[in-house]
Design a protein around this nucleic acid. Structure first.
Lengths: 247, 247
DNA sequence: AAGGGGGATTGATTTGCGTCAACTCTGCAA
DNA sequence: TTGCAGAGTTGACGCAAATCAATCCCCCTT
């Protein structure tokens, strides 16, 4: 009902993809050299989103998907009674907005965790391009499929892991994604609060905080507020698979 | 490592889609009349799967997606230590196998809950058809997107609902899907065990059983083993949104 | 018809995480 | 510098669901 009045900036920018160093994480990956140059016309525009502002909200009409060029986001779904579930944290090169294709309306909120910038990819144009660029079609399908697989592994986490296993899996995943982006796998800043991590992992913020403290006591990580150092990555991974008791 | 030795039957059958009464739930939905007839060549073959047998297993190479023509399936992912998470139950008209596109390898198991039959849709052929049939491309994207939205709502369920809310949501969902298939919305047979329901909902089988009993005591449903009658659908829906205490 | 086995129910007890509450830390603004 | 607000930590306690265990029921096989 309420119009989105987020402070956004539109920037018509050509050469969006061909000069972007994120392509190997993003939609253009695996596309032949000749087709690659055509992709600059795929991106409609770029949009800047300030921290805490929505890129889109649940019930907004679906028109485009978004590739994160800079910054990071959370996606969440809400229950009428106010309960929130964070369904994902998105980093540079990742795609947002796929939830809207099925119904023509977004089914979750996408909120910037820091000042961020996205490439707007009008969906109608994407479908058109995908029909002539085989590699683009395939890469798009792969991205959607991987989202499904990721969601399934979150269901596994939420349905059958205990609190510390969940946090260990979260940290391991963050570390991997940092690595893929050329950042340190052992040292990073979390852009989300304990409450948002908790919501993502199906835990309360106090439980997240206690698990962080416990990991620190065990020498697995060092925590200073949002700054995390992973001291024993193998130890964390072992935790994920650990069965508490089986007799 | 182990080859799939499931007792399957291959049936080359023409007119797979144009004579199928499930089309409005399935991949051909929303496709123009002229394109519709071409779809019979999309389906490679049909395959019968006996109860408890896998349609595919995690780590199997991905070659095709499957449309359920008769019967029903569960999908699950396994942790090395043996823990299982059911990620979904699939009914007629629904699509299986989307998890394999991203990596070229299946990431979950699809097991028949009863003797079932699927249409095999070779993925390479689907991509090819989607490039020339606009409606097919769009419908395929919609199906993947809806899968993502469904998974997000499962994450909401697993992350922030209590046991009885989860079961109420499950029963309400089953009822809706029965309705969509022309079956009674108030009376149906569950094809899965309490343990499988529990795995799906992130609960133990005893908790599922107790919740069933409690619903019956409250006059919301009647339960006889796998046979369910919904007596008060509104009451169940109210349960889903109910906040236990807020002061 | 009898026997057996998997699935389901129900009860007693335990426990992991949530809840409530007090306190600390950090950063920002006056 | 002081004060404040939001985020994070830590402790005490309670509860919902897990665990353990006994029994029942339905269906399949012989």
């Amino acid at each position: 009902m309420k119009a989105t009045t987020a402070p956004v900036t539109l920037t018509g920018l050509k050469k969006a993809c061909s000069q972007c160093n994120l392509f190997e994480l993003c939609l253009p990956f695996g596309i032949s050299e000749t087709d690659f140059l055509r992709l600059d016309d795929l991106v409609g525009s770029q949009r800047k989103i300030k921290r805490q502002q929505p890129l889109y909200r649940s019930a907004d009409p679906f028109e485009a998907i978004y590739a994160i060029r800079a910054g990071s986001f959370k996606s969440d779904v809400l229950l009428e009674d106010g309960r929130e579930q964070v369904t994902g944290f998105q980093m540079t090169g990742e795609i947002l907005g796929l939830d809207g294709i099925g119904t023509g309306v977004h089914s979750c909120n996408a909120i910037a965790l820091e000042d961020s910038e996205v490439c707007v990819i009008p969906y109608a144009r994407l479908e058109e391009f995908a029909r002539s660029i085989e590699g683009l079609q395939h890469q798009f399908h792969k991205i959607m499929s991987r989202e499904i697989v990721r969601d399934h592994s979150m269901m596994l986490l939420l349905g059958s892991m205990r609190a510390e296993e969940r946090l260990a899996a979260f940290l391991t995943n963050m570390s991997q994604r940092c690595t893929a982006r050329g950042f340190s796998p052992t040292e990073f800043h979390l852009r989300m609060t304990r409450e948002e991590i908790g919501s993502y992992l199906g835990l309360k913020l106090e439980t997240v905080s206690r698990a962080f403290s416990h990991f620190q006591e065990k020498g697995l990580i060092s925590v200073q507020q949002k700054h995390i150092c992973i001291l024993d990555a193998e130890g964390l991974k072992k935790l994920i698979q650990h069965q508490p008791c089986m007799h």
